[in-house]
Simulated assay, not measured.
Amino acid sequence: MTKTALVTGAGRRFGFEVAKALIEDGYKVFAHYNSSKDGVDELSQLGAEPIQANFARQHDVKEMVTQIKKSGSKLDLLINNASCFFDNDSVDNDSEALETVFQVHNIAPYLLITGLQQQLSNSDNGLIINITDIYTDKPSTNYIAYCAAKAGLANMTQAFAKALAPDVRVNAIQPGPILFLPEHDNEHKMQVLDETPLQVEGGLEPMIDTVRFLRDNPFLTGESIKVDGGRALNL
């Protein structure tokens, strides 16, 4: 029977690449996006089913849950990857940005997990993977709200791992410098790599490998794996 996965934030970067990898692995993929649709169009051509939802609005998340439930009784994999990244100035001067940080990283994953719990339980190997951050353990003072929200998602990972066992496993991945943003200049890149013991930009493949590792090892739950080239050691 075909396995089914939901990837949030599938329009770009890791979300896009892991969705594509899962399609190659034979999954039917629900590819969620908010506004980054270019990658989702490509995923659609590969067979993914696109789902638009603004995670800053609870109504959108609940509508998405309803739509996925209507499509089938089983969900094998949920990857909570959707994210937004605001610094202190952004959230201090825009209350909507502050709310969005916690809506996207905490409330939306909570609603997806609780709303799709039965579908995940119906799988023989139901798995949730939450994408957190290496700053979960050692927060940056420049992104306080973001780090707090990611820490909340990390805590949620452990709580749901206990609550949903033995039917559903729940784990997290903490990425480090896997893929620099276009706005990162060479000075920033060199500084980050200098702080990273392996001194390389990891790329997305190590993240995808970790998803497959968590999927294929049925004796892991409540775990959080750093994929960061060792950078967390120097934070």
Rank of each mutant, 00 (worst) to 15 (best):
L127T: 11
S44V: 01
C84H: 04
H184N: 15
D89M: 07
L193E: 03
L43I: 02
V192K: 02
L78N: 04
Q119W: 01
A145S: 13
A19N: 08
N155I: 10
L127V: 01
A148L: 11
P175E: 06
E201H: 07
Q158F: 09
K28L: 12
E96D: 15
A151D: 02
I144P: 00
E195Q: 14
K20E: 15
V91Q: 07
T132N: 08
K69Y: 00
A161C: 08
G11S: 06
I173T: 09
S224K: 14
D92T: 09
F30M: 07
E205R: 09
Q103R: 13
V7N: 06
K150Y: 10
S36N: 09
T100L: 12
V101A: 12
F219Y: 15
D38H: 05
S140R: 08
N217P: 01
S36L: 05
A56D: 14
A161Y: 03
L153M: 15
T8V: 11
G47F: 10
G152N: 05
S83R: 08
V65D: 01
N93Q: 12
V18I: 13
N171F: 08
H188P: 00
T66Q: 12
Y33I: 01
M190K: 15
G9T: 06
I131T: 11
H59L: 11
N234F: 12
V65R: 03
G126M: 04
K162L: 14
T157V: 08
M190S: 14
D124A: 12
D87L: 01
E63K: 14
P197V: 11
E63A: 13
G230V: 10
E187V: 13
T157A: 06
E96R: 12
L43M: 04
M156L: 14
P197A: 11
G126D: 04
G15R: 12
E17C: 10
T4W: 03
L6T: 02
S95W: 13
D167Y: 02
N81E: 11
K3P: 01
L77G: 04
A159M: 11
C84Q: 11
N80I: 13
N186S: 15
D25N: 10
L77T: 05
L98P: 01
T210D: 07
I79Y: 09
S73L: 04
A53I: 02
I134A: 01
S90A: 15
Q45P: 00
M1D: 02
I178G: 01
L235T: 03
R169V: 07
T196A: 07
D87C: 10
P218R: 14
L111Q: 13
E195K: 14
L179H: 11
L98V: 00
L6K: 02
P175V: 05
Y110C: 03
D194S: 13
P139N: 03
F213V: 01
R215V: 03
C84G: 05
N80Q: 12
T4D: 00
L111C: 06
G230F: 08
E223Y: 10
T210I: 09
Q158N: 09
V227I: 15
R215K: 13
T196K: 06
P218H: 13
I178N: 15
S71F: 00
A48Y: 05
M64A: 13
G229N: 06
Q117K: 15
V101N: 14
D194H: 07
G222R: 05
I178H: 04
S140Y: 02
H184C: 12
K3T: 07
R169E: 06
L46M: 14
T136A: 10
V200P: 02
L116C: 04
G126Y: 08
V227C: 09
L111V: 05
N155S: 14
N54D: 15
T114G: 00
